[in-house]
């Protein structure tokens, strides 16, 4: 297939390079979904060239493979990821690793809004900044951001941890459920029912292990803990006049 090449690799390993300047997005995703599994010897590393900001790249992977994308990607890159370790050597558009199930998605640049939205498992690492609504409706995935996050990050997050090494925009953790957010820098405002809680030695261990997994060098003792005040969990008749 034009656009597919097999770079030299050590004996017993196999790698493939897919060039989006010569292949269509559909061909690349179809190769990752179908052809990858039948390669012999097994392909452990796939490099994708010339992504040029395309949407939906490397979505729905379900394979024990390392995927490296050389350049900026568009919306929903590596969405619904299972097992695969996807690295984007550039920036990512809206909805990075949306609904990730497992594996690791790493962005070396910055990510647009709604990164790791509703992620259920695995790890999302954004080495630069993440825009608004990072980790919105998180359901078990862990997210580590090397820089800052935009407004309303962690909105309605239910499970999983969000570690922010920089600052957090306004409305952080609005309507949080049981996710915990750790922020090292300045918080420009907490959302409804989000509250700062004591940062315990157990929290420090959690942050240290997530930073270590993310490969981000940062002092784990400098973080603040933000979690749900749980005041929105139940209907409060005293507030009924605020509705309807």
């Amino acid at each position: 297939m034009e656009g597919l090449s097999r770079p030299d690799t050590p004996v017993g390993q196999s790698a493939v390079s897919l060039d989006l300047a010569k292949m269509s997005l559909r061909q690349v995703n179809a190769w990752l979904h179908h052809d990858l599994a039948s390669q012999s010897p097994p392909v452990r590393r796939v490099e994708i060239l010339n992504p040029a900001g395309m949407h939906n790249l490397a979505v729905g992977l379900d394979a024990d493979v390392e995927v490296v994308i050389r350049g900026h990607v568009g919306y929903y890159a590596a969405g619904m990821n299972k097992r695969a370790r996807v690295t984007i050597d550039g920036n990512a558009g809206r909805g990075l690793a949306e609904n990730i199930m497992s594996g690791v998605v790493r962005v070396k640049g910055s990510a647009s809004d709604s990164a790791a939205a509703s992620g259920r498992g695995g790890l999302v690492v954004i080495e630069g900044d993440a825009a608004s609504r990072c980790a919105i409706s998180l359901k078990g995935c862990d997210v580590v951001v090397g820089g800052s996050v935009g407004h309303v990050s962690g909105f309605m997050a239910q499970r999983g941890r969000l570690v922010i090494c920089g600052d957090a925009g306004a409305g952080l953790g609005d309507s949080l459920y049981e996710s915990v957010i750790y922020v090292r820098g300045r918080i420009h405002g907490l959302g409804a029912d989000a509250r700062e809680e004591p940062f315990t030695p157990a929290d420090r261990e959690v942050v240290a292990s997530l930073l270590s997994a993310a490969g981000i060098d940062c002092d784990a003792s400098e973080f603040k803990r933000v979690a749900s005040g749980r005041t929105l969990y139940h209907w409060n008749a005293a507030h009924s006049s605020h509705y309807g």
Binding site: A52, G53, H72, G74, Y75, N91, G93, S110, A131, G150
Partner: peptide, 20 residues
């Protein structure tokens, strides 16, 4: 969207950001 900028000369070294 970035994809409509991908063809511009020197884009690889451009300062790329999202407005706040």
């Amino acid at each position: 969207e970035f994809r409509s900028l991908a063809h511009l000369p020197g884009i690889a070294d451009a300062n790329i950001f999202e407005p706040k």
